[in-house]
Amino acid sequence: MQIYLPIAEMAIPAESIFFVSLFVGCLSGLFGIGGGFLTTPFMIFMGVPPAVAVGTQPCQIAANGLSGMLAHLRKGHVDVKMGAVMLLGSSVGTVIGVFVFKLLKYLGQIDFAISMLYTILLSSIGLLMLYESVSKLLRKKQSVKLEFNQFKVNDFVATLPFKMRFPKSKLYISALLPIGVGFMSGILASILGIGGGFMIVPAMIYIIGMPGIVVAGTSLFQIVFTTSFATLMHAVTNNTVDILLAVILICGGVVGAQIGAVLSRRIKTTHARVLLAVLILSVAVRLSMQVFMMPDELFSTVVR
C-alpha cells in the first residue's frame, strides 16, 4: 500500500516501512538495543530522504525508550538526578547537532556525512558484537567489564571541578562527566537520528563509573528526553519530521517490541547475537559501498 508522506513529499510502500520497524522493534525487545542505527539506514535504502529519516527516527526512539524506561522506573532503577544532569549536556549537543546538520545539508555533504558516520559506527559495533558473542560461544568467559571497573575513577577524572553527589549511584563526581556523556548523546540523536545507547551505556559504566543496575534505566530516561527534544528541534529548524512516517515507525516498533519480549523468554540470545552482529556488519558494508565504490552516476542534483 502506497502512502504519500506530506513532509518527505513522496510516496512510500507503507507495509515495507512497517515491517522494517516491526523487525527492528523485535530485535530491540530481544537484545535490549534501541535499533535506531538499523531503522535509519533501512529507510535511506528505501528511498526516504536521509534528512527526513534522521529527523523522524528520534520520534520513534522516544516512544520505544519511554516504554523501556517505565519498566526500569517501576523497579527503581533510574538515577533521575544523574539523568537530569546528563540532559544539560544533551540539550546543548542537540542544538549544535541540528545546526551542524543544517550546515552539512547546505554544503551538500549531508548524504556523504551520514553514510560515512554510519559506516564507521556500524562496523565498529558489528565487529565488537561479533567478537564478544563469538568468544562467549567459545566459552572464553572474558569479563571485560571487570577489567575496566577497576580503574573507573582514574586520576584525571578525579581532578575535574564542579563535584556533585549522586546518592542513587553512590557517586561523588564532577558534573562535567555526565554533562559530557549527555552532550555526545545529543549530537548522535540529532545528526544520526539514533538514541546512541550502545555508546552511552559503556560511557556511563566506564567513564562515569555508575553501578550496572541503574545504567540501562538512566540511559533510557536520558534518551527519551533527548530524542523528544531532537524531534522538536528538527521540526522547528529543518522541517524534516514526517508525522505519518513516525506513526508507521512507532506502530511497527511497539508491536515488534512485544514480540521480541515474548521471544526473549524462549530462545537463547547467545547464538542470535552472532546473527545480529552479521546483520549489522552487512548494513555497514552496504552503506560503505556508497562511500568507497565508484558510483554509477557521479553527478547529483538538489534543489537549493
Binding site: 520513534q60 520505544n64 516504554s67 523528544s228 508525522i243 512507532i250
Partner: peptide
C-alpha cells in the same frame, strides 16, 4: 513547534501504551 509537540505527544502516548500492553 506545535507540530513537533504533537509528534512528541504521540510518541509518549504510544510508549506508555506499549508499556501498558506489556
Amino acid at each position: 513547534l506545535w507540530y513537533g509537540l504533537v509528534c512528541v505527544m504521540f510518541a509518549i502516548f504510544m510508549g506508555w501504551l506499549s508499556d501498558f500492553i506489556r
